[in-house]
């Protein structure tokens, strides 16, 4: 029987031999076989452990330490080999799975929201932030809502300027496609007690032949505030705040006296262009006392202002469209740009 020194020498040789063979292992299967050979039940290390009982106590301790050291070395070597092989296998997998991500098939394409809707949403959001709610109304209206309640009697020259499209319902010229969004003012005041803070976006109609700058159906947004002590200064300040929120802080506003039958005083509101010139954006004014009275609101107790302007034009301006008809052609080559 060999002594502890011999055993240690044998184990050292075994570890050295194992290191070489583990380095040669090319896959995880051969590594598993080597693992069994070096550390399994039939391995030299296991056999050596069984022989410990036959040694004298001094040798037994030294031999035991040698066996444990060999075992630890072998385990570490096998773990290192496993790690090396696993990393190689993963790397091989990565290489095998290489993809060109620019080979795009089955694209998920989000649709495009129409420019008018985008402009309308932006306007609504700005006014909501200023404390307004959004009112809506029908596109076919009676003369009462489109004209009379708005202080435009039947003989009034302003009626002609609206170029109204009438429909074949009721008496002649009694029912029409609304020529402005102002009827929504009337409907709101008929149904809601002041205070009122609304904007009303929607489609309006005129007998305009479609060309690069006109459509017979286009979109406006109308605003109405009715509250105690509302002034022309409030209107001016509100337009200013809206314009700063919508166009940015550099854009200035001004009011110019104008005339609308449903407001008194009336004004046009202009915004400044970068070159310092002014662009007429829309009309506005203090709600005419007759309009308030027509809706059962006492003009001595309540005052209000109203304003309105075109939505399509904002889209045309923002993207410098050269033909407004693009907005109704529904050509995907146009729609998908936005």
């Amino acid at each position: 029987m060999s002594n502890a020194a011999d055993l240690t020498a044998d184990l050292d040789a075994l570890v050295a031999d194992a290191a070489e063979r583990l380095a040669d292992a090319r896959d995880l299967d051969s590594l598993a076989a080597l693992d069994a050979e070096f550390l399994g039940k039939k391995s030299a290390v296991t056999a050596a452990k069984k022989q410990l009982g036959g040694l004298d106590p001094d040798d037994r301790k030294a031999a035991g330490q040698a066996i444990n050291a060999a075992r630890t070395s072998l385990e570490a070597a096998i773990a290192a080999a496993r790690e090396r092989l696993a990393a190689g296998a993963r790397a091989a997998q990565y290489e095998a799975e290489r993809l060109d991500l620019s080979e795009k098939l089955g694209e998920i394409r989000r649709g495009s929201l129409h420019l008018n809707t985008q402009a309308r949403d932006r306007l609504e959001d700005v006014f909501v932030g200023m404390g307004f709610t959004i009112a809506e109304g029908p596109e076919v209206e009676t003369a009462w809502y489109n004209f009379e309640a708005l202080n435009i009697p039947e003989w009034h020259p302003a009626r002609g300027s609206f170029d109204t499209i009438f429909v074949n319902l009721g008496e002649p010229e009694e029912v029409m496609l609304r020529s402005h969004t102002s009827p929504v003012q009337i409907r709101t005041m008929e149904n809601q007690e002041p205070p009122i803070y609304i904007v009303a976006p929607g489609r309006t109609f005129r007998t305009d032949t479609a060309d690069a700058t006109h459509l017979p159906a286009f979109n406006q947004i109308e605003g109405l505030v009715v509250d105690r002590g509302i002034t022309l200064g409030d209107l001016s300040g509100t337009m200013d705040e809206f314009v700063r929120a919508f166009f940015g802080g550099e854009v200035k506003t001004r009011l110019r006296p104008s005339y609308f039958p449903f407001t008194e005083p009336s004004a046009e509101f202009d915004i400044s262009r970068p070159d310092g010139s002014w662009l007429e954006l829309g009309g506005c004014g203090m709600v005419h006392p007759n309009v308030l009275r027509n809706c059962g609101i006492d003009p001595e107790e309540w005052q209000g202002f109203a304003f309105g302007f075109g939505i399509d034009r904002l889209a045309v301006m923002r993207y410098e469209l050269d033909d407004i008809r693009e907005l109704v052609n529904n050509d995907v080559r146009f729609l998908r740009q936005f």
Binding site: V128, G131, T238, P257
Partner: peptide, 25 residues
């Protein structure tokens, strides 16, 4: 309106009214 016109709309101090209720959709 005539008074406002001759005073000048641009000379009117700008104020912003706030209703009691919050805005919203």
């Amino acid at each position: 309106e005539e008074v406002g016109r001759m005073f000048g709309y641009e000379n009117i101090p700008r104020t912003v009214p706030k209703g009691d209720d919050p805005g919203g959709l």
